[in-house]
């Protein structure tokens, strides 16, 4: 029977699980799934500097750890700086012959709060210094989830959070999502990409490309959070797919400044398909949805024209 079906998923991917069972992420957490797949692609020769946030809290209640690779918990604001130090330190240890010469990737990790808000300066410095074998991954669940769903600069327009509540006089978050990938691109680094754990093979391929680029590289991973988005846990993968299919979160990569769209979407679905069903958007009116649709179409068209001009 299996012969009729060419694809056997476990054969397409590294089977080692370096983010172990026993972590305490919520049911259906697609941020934990994103971490799982990023680690599959990275292999063993890495050192992770992880800013505080859900993925750190759920994985490292002393004396337990869900990590099977060298991992440091750092404060909220300095994952970029610590990962820089690790990259520089490894280089010195190799030069002095204290550890064998080989590629060990220094990986900075943080949530959207840690990356787009409080850790932005440390990250910008790291990208500016052009560290080799340096990768930063932002796991973007579009709010400060670990402390109870407060808005960040990565929270999308119209989303209700505990600090951007929707009501008679408020639409919820009233600013547009910060375009963090574009900020990374502005640093002129070799590789920047967006990804989502609903597309695990695309995600893994981008991690590998990021490492192969030599670094510094930046990945922005949309990570669906059922708890904060107010959706049932079994729909976490579906909503990541809808974000991509509606153009709300386009998948693309920027290699040496050249944009390339990486998901094949002949025609975008209406944003309503993505917004409806999520509790954080349930107050939106038809007019609000129209405003969001216009913005999404405009931003998407910008990317398509960059793609076209960069790919002949």
């Amino acid at each position: 029977m299996i012969d009729k079906y060419a694809v056997f998923v476990p054969n397409l991917t590294n089977r080692a699980e370096n983010f172990t069972s026993g972590h305490r992420a919520c049911q259906g957490c697609a941020e934990a799934l994103a971490v799982r797949h990023v680690l599959k692609a990275l292999g063993h020769d890495i050192v992770i500097s992880n800013a505080t946030g859900c993925m750190e809290i759920v994985s490292s209640p002393l004396p337990l750890t869900a990590w099977n690779v060298p991992w440091i918990h750092v404060t909220f604001e300095n994952a970029g700086a610590v990962a820089s130090g690790v990259a520089a330190g490894l280089k010195v240890l190799m030069r002095k012959g204290k550890i064998p010469e080989k590629r060990i990737v220094s990986v900075g990790m943080g949530g959207d709060g840690a990356t787009t808000d409080i850790g932005l300066q440390a990250l910008s410095g790291a990208l500016e210094r052009m560290h080799k074998d340096f990768l930063y991954v932002c796991f973007d669940n579009e709010a400060y989830m670990n402390t109870g769903i407060q808005r960040s600069s990565s929270t999308p327009y119209g989303a209700a959070t505990t600090t951007s509540p929707a009501g008679k006089d408020s639409i919820g978050q009233h600013t547009w999502k910060k375009n963090m990938a574009a900020i990374a691109v502005a640093h002129d680094i070799p590789y920047v990409a967006t990804a989502c754990s609903s597309y695990p093979f695309d995600l893994q391929a981008k991690v590998i490309k990021a490492v192969e680029s030599g670094g510094p590289a930046y990945l922005h991973v949309l990570s669906v959070c059922p708890t904060g988005w107010r959706i049932p846990s079994h729909l976490a993968i579906k909503y990541g797919r809808l974000a991509v299919e509606t153009g709300v979160f386009p998948l693309y990569e920027v290699q040496d400044g050249k944009y390339r769209m990486t998901a094949d979407i002949p025609k975008l679905r209406p944003v309503r398909d993505y917004l409806s069903g999520q509790g954080r958007f349930r107050h939106l009116t038809d007019t609000d949805i129209d405003i969001i649709q216009k913005r999404v179409t405009k931003e998407y068209d910008k990317l398509i024209s960059l793609h076209k001009s960069n790919n002949g």
């Binding site: 029977m1 694809v7 476990p10 172990t20 069972s21 337990l64 750890t65 099977n68």
Partner: peptide
């Protein structure tokens, strides 16, 4: 002790469990 979180069993959080119908499963993973 890398990965020692495996001693923490999260299985008792669940209120429903998945059950496979092997007649329909194509073993794709």
């Amino acid at each position: 002790e890398p990965g020692n979180a495996v001693v923490y069993h999260t299985g008792n959080w669940k209120s429903q469990r998945p059950v496979w119908n092997e007649q329909k499963c194509i073993k794709c993973g």
